[in-house]
Design a protein around this nucleic acid. Structure first.
Length: 752
DNA sequence: GTTAGAAACAATCCT
DNA sequence: TGTTTCTAAC
């Protein structure tokens, strides 16, 4: 029993309560992972529960891996029998065994966002859906949210209740599902939905897993959607030993279907549920925690709780307002350098958090210049790069001939002289004869009007068949090398001799070593197994603790992590909280942003720096943001308002701020208004390299007082035009949106 | 059938 | 601003 003494009373209570439903409301940094792992250990060591009967579910592979590691340490022998996995990978594992019961083949492919989009595009073309009216992305979003809420195409159609647009969307949904089934493919949401469908269709399969998973634990429960909730409910249906751990204040995934009611109404759904609150925070110093509490208490409808700590107050939260995003990035880079050179922190102690991925670019630029090792999490996933997707498409074609998308992707890569026309004919033939695209290729000779292309197709089919033979004998790594070699893919890249090709080659080499890793570490390596692993990795999974770099990522990605030093940047209204949330008519959206801010602040253990910029380029338009309302919710007593030294605050754009009198609170105004500042003589500071903007000679084509039209903002009157050196800076008073400043060459204003 | 360059478009966040 | 899609010329 000794090892449980390190737990506090509430934690112990949660660990020892093993029978029946249990809700653990675990505030940020309150040791919930410790509770979960100790609970597993307690079940095994003290209650003699067979590890085989325990299931622990998380959301990311990284979290699952960490849990596994910690359980292994606590329990020792037998712990490997505990089933620890994410929702998605757990479902895949189940579906690979039983999905043939509901009309799929067990070697199904998993489609990522790109694949979905391609499929949808083809579908819309085939069905003559006007993609101006019904955008592919919109359709996919709607379908995804139907699935999150377990709404079938039939049900969606019923709910449309005669409304034309809704009926059309439901139609497309149905067709999309049919197309997936034909391709023997599942999208991400299907992994959950189809598992539920399987359980409902086959009671014996459900019973098997109910019997197996006598004790179920779910981490980050506030992130579950209705589908996941139902899945858990089904699994726990027999023994009812369900322990969920979560924090309603950290619910930040509404956009992907998370249903906060799952946690708020847990006690209603599961009668006689025990509820335990963990309110002692072990992570952050006092000032940081207090600031977080002050922010989150502005939300309504929370479960009542207040985090406390017995740590000292620590340092105040540093707060900077900079001129622009470049200044902000310079400030952060230079602070990091200082901290590291003084030996206060290591690079890996520091994280830089932001609201949107787009913000990473400037940070990256400044970090690179300052020679700071960094890693950006998120953005373009490794597995979404073109060259990697090409190789994967080959592997998928070899593995599952029914995956039309994969076949179409590579049929002409490298060039085999099989173009769009031929592909179209083969497609039509496949459709007519109800066969897969690949099967149509096999019957190339019967396809009408393709003339010479038939021979080329025959060659391609032959090549794929050869690869299939090899796939049975070769490990994945060698198969990949064979493909790269025999297609000449790698060679073609080498001949290019461009920088772009270099990075692609690097990526391919990295991919090859990932294949080798898989071949070595997997229990029973197979091509299907490899493709599955690849489909389910998230970017965050690749973070490892002992590498020496600063991590740059979105606040969403940072959930569940902690860092001694955190920089939280871009704290401006319109960015954080996002423009979407501010303009939304639902108060909920703003509350979700506030929870996100709470998550951000509570990532910091010892030191937090918050920053914002007065102006920022957003998609080529200069925007002026006020200090985030969330920053204003933090009482000044917790803040250390820094006056940015001039090195971060070069004035770059001529006279700025003349009519923007309100930049936020008084203490936020760290710089005198720059009305009188002359345009900087060296604008190359900002517009360097190829980013040179061409200013029109003689003037922008309109004058002060003219009425002009902007594509988005509509009509307005020109208030002033300032020659900013490289470009004209135009101030316009728009009828609808008020005064905006913009650069003439980006704004494309039309004189009326 | 392929390619480069122009035009159009884009509004978080992610397993 | 960066990225994707369209168009025209090879």
């Amino acid at each position: 029993m000794i090892m449980y003494d390190t737990l506090n009373d509430m934690q112990k209570k949660a660990v020892f309560h093993t029978e029946g439903p249990l809700l653990v409301l675990a505030g940020a940094g309150s040791g919930k992972t410790r509770v979960l792992t100790h609970r597993v250990a307690y079940l095994i060591n003290e209650k003699n529960i067979n590890p085989w009967n325990i299931l622990a579910i998380t959301f990311t592979n990284k979290a699952a891996g960490e849990m596994r590691e910690r359980v292994d340490k606590l329990v020792g022998i037998g712990s490997e029998m505990v089933w620890v996995s994410t929702f998605h990978s757990g479902c895949v594992r189940i579906l690979r065994r039983h999905i043939d019961n509901i009309g799929y083949n067990t070697n199904f492919t998993i489609y990522d966002a790109d694949d979905q989009k391609t499929l949808m595009r083809d579908l819309c073309k085939r069905l003559n859906v006007d993609t101006k009216m019904y955008k592919e992305k919109m359709l996919l979003n709607r379908i995804s949210s139907f699935k999150d809420n377990l709404i079938t195409p039939q049900e969606a159609y019923r709910r449309a209740s005669g409304e034309f647009r809704e009926m059309k969307i439901a139609d497309v949904y149905g067709e999309y599902q049919e197309a997936l089934r034909k391709n023997n493919a599942l999208d991400f949401d299907d992994l959950i939905v189809k598992t539920i469908e399987l359980f409902k269709a086959c009671s014996d399969v459900l019973e098997y897993y109910q019997e197996r998973f006598r004790y179920i634990m779910v981490d980050e429960y506030q992130d579950t959607n209705i589908a996941q909730f139902n899945l858990v409910k089904l699994l726990a249906g027999k023994y009812n030993n369900l322990c969920v751990v979560g924090d309603d204040d950290q619910s930040i995934y509404k956009f992907r279907g998370a249903n906060i009611e799952n946690i708020l109404k847990f006690e209603e759904t599961f009668k006689d549920a025990m509820v335990i609150k963990l309110e002692q925070n072990y992570r952050s110093t006092g000032n940081i925690l207090n600031a977080a509490n002050e922010v989150i208490k502005n939300n309504f409808g929370r479960k009542d709780k207040t985090l406390w700590t017995d740590k000292s107050n620590g340092n105040k939260i540093a707060y900077y307002q900079l001129e622009d995003a470049y200044g902000e990035a310079e400030m952060i880079a230079s602070e990091v350098s200082d901290l590291v050179s003084k030996g206060i922190y290591k690079y890996s102690d520091c994280a830089c958090l932001y609201r949107t991925n787009a913000q990473s670019r400037i940070l990256e630029e400044k970090f690179m210049r300052a020679n700071i090792p960094y890693k950006i999490v998120g953005g373009v996933n490794f597995y979404q790069r073109r060259e990697i997707k090409d190789i994967l498409a080959y592997l998928k074609t070899v593995d599952n001939g029914l995956d039309d998308l994969a076949v179409k992707r590579i049929i002409n890569i490298p060039r085999r002289g099989i173009g769009a026309t031929t592909i179209g004919k083969a497609e039509a033939y496949a459709l007519e004869n109800e066969m897969s695209f690949y099967q149509a290729l096999v019957h190339a000779d019967s396809i009408p009007n393709i003339k010479g292309a038939a021979a080329k197709i025959r060659q391609f089919v032959l090549y794929i068949e050869q690869l299939r033979d090899k796939a049975n004998e070769l490990p994945v790594k060698e198969l990949v090398e064979e493909i790269l070699d025999s297609t000449g893919y790698l060679n073609d890249l080498k001949l290019e001799e461009t920088e772009d090709a270099e990075t692609r080659i690097d990526n391919i080499n990295e991919f090859i070593s990932k294949c080798a890793d898989y071949d070595e570490s997997a229990e029973a390596p197979s091509l299907s197994g490899f493709l599955e692993e690849v489909a389910l990795v998230a970017d965050i999974d690749s973070l490892n603790d002992d590498s020496e770099y600063v991590v740059l990522m979105t606040v969403h990605s940072a959930k569940g992590l902690e860092f001694p030093k955190v920089f939280l940047c871009g704290m401006e209204d319109g960015l954080f909280p996002s423009y979407m949330a501010i303009t939304s008519d639902s108060q909920d959206d703003l509350e979700e942003e506030r929870r996100l801010c709470y998550v951000a602040i509570t990532r910091a253990m010892e030191s937090l720096t918050i920053s914002c910029a007065k102006m920022r380029m957003v998609r080529g338009e200069l925007q002026y943001g006020k200090v985030s309302r969330f920053v204003k919710e933090i009482p000044v007593k917790y803040l250390d308002v820094k006056t940015a030294s001039s090195r971060y605050d070069k004035v770059r754009f001529g006279s700025i701020g003349s009519d923007n009198s309100d930049y936020g609170h008084a203490y936020a105004r760290v710089q005198p208004k720059a009305e009188t500042v002359k345009p900087k003589s060296n604008p190359m500071d900002v517009y360097k390299g190829s980013n040179v903007v061409n200013k029109k000679a003689g003037g922008p084509g309109y004058e002060t007082g003219d009425t002009v039209k902007h594509i988005k903002f509509g009509k307005g009157v020109v208030k002033s035009i300032v020659d900013g050196g490289r470009d004209y800076e135009v101030t316009v008073d728009f009828e609808k949106v008020g005064v905006k400043k913009m650069f003439a060459s980006f704004a494309k204003l039309k004189k009326l």
